[in-house]
């Protein structure tokens, strides 16, 4: 009998931890060299990557096409202000709490929206996001309809504050991406990938589809909450109409679809692409939206699997999530 050995990833993946660490280390020193506006831009890009990665886990893998995840962006943003200003907790600790508190909301909400499927699920999540916004504007302590400012950084100089936000965003994106990679290498990742490819077959092979989806719904809510907290930190102000805006969902769908649904790499590339597009086009008003739409359609027509599918041709995988089986060379008659 032939024997086989199992490995994860390719030779390229062996260097990845090194490259990953080097990039993070380089990014960590950037505030020393970069002017403030550039640091702000990096923070924006980091937030977009986090959002795209989370929405892709939910929709691209879990098949949960939600257009209401801005609910958790909003909850995270308000929670940050609440913990940091009203409770007087250290703002960095508040950021962590802002992420975690989203799970408390996501659990009961999951029982509500998981009764719906397909288009009803999408609309249901949106409705819930709107309802949460309506509740929030009723709370006068959180500034009602006009929103609330973040005062926790007011003692800090501008330069110091922006560097602090930059580092918070860097640590957050590092942890979010690392957790995503580890998750996708785990049993949950195997289940999610199976659900992505064929939900019925996954169930028949013993995957608890509903439970896996609920788990992922809860986990990504942390990521959305962290992103919301970071948005509050960098804007220094939270406004209900902005932070609960369905535009976030439109942007996330755009990033994930042009980058490539259902891979880890795709959403990152999609987020970077979107970042540069909006940076170049944002001064052109409605033309900006038209160009974005046309580009989106063009990209998915030419590359149905998104930019990453186009680049990788399904042969490369940056993160060692794939299994490889190789036959062991045999020594007979020993």
């Amino acid at each position: 009998m032939a024997t086989y050995s199992v490995s994860r990833g390719t030779r390229l993946n062996k260097f990845l931890p090194v490259i990953f660490s080097a990039v993070v280390a380089l990014l960590a020193f950037l505030p020393k060299f970069l002017q403030i506006p550039y640091q702000v831009k990096f923070v924006q890009a980091f937030i977009l990557i986090i959002l795209a990665t989370m929405w892709n886990l939910l929709a691209g893998f879990g098949g949960l096409v939600s257009i209401g995840q801005q609910a958790f962006i909003g909850i995270g943003a308000y929670a940050l202000v609440y913990f940091a200003d009203i409770q007087g907790i250290n703002p960095f600790l508040s950021l962590i709490l802002a992420g975690l508190v989203c799970v408390v909301f996501a659990l009961p909400l999951s029982f509500l929206v998981f009764r719906l499927s397909g288009g009803y699920f999408a609309i249901g999540t949106w409705v819930i996001a709107e309802i949460i916004k309506l509740f929030t504007v009723q709370i006068s302590q959180l500034g009602g309809g006009s929103g609330i400012s973040l005062g926790a950084f007011s003692g800090m100089g501008r330069e110091m504050r922006i560097a602090a936000v930059y580092w918070s965003a860097l640590v957050t994106i590092f942890l979010v991406l690392l957790s995503t990679i580890l998750l996708m290498r785990s049993k949950v990742g195997l289940a999610l990938t199976a659900i992505r490819d064929d939900q019925t077959a996954a169930g028949v092979l013993g995957v608890n589809v509903q439970q896996t989806r609920r788990l992922i719904f809860l986990l990504v809510s942390i990521g959305f909450g962290l992103a919301g907290g970071l948005i509050a930190m960098s804007n220094l102000r939270v406004q209900p109409d902005d932070i609960f805006s369905v535009n976030y969902s439109a942007i996330m769908i755009f990033m994930v679809v042009i980058g490539g649904l259902g891979s880890i790499e795709g959403p990152i590339i999609g987020a970077v692409a979107y970042y540069f597009l909006q940076d170049k086009l944002k001064d052109h008003g409605t033309l900006y939206l038209i160009i974005l739409g046309v580009l989106g359609i063009l990209i998915v027509t030419i590359a149905p699997r998104g930019l990453w599918g186009f680049i990788s041709r399904e042969k490369i995988s940056l993160f060692a999530t794939k299994y490889r089986i190789s036959e062991n060379k045999q020594k007979e008659g020993a």
Partner: peptide
């Protein structure tokens, strides 16, 4: 009903 993008293994 294969998981099309996953390997046989």
């Amino acid at each position: 009903k294969p998981f099309s993008e996953m390997t046989v293994y």
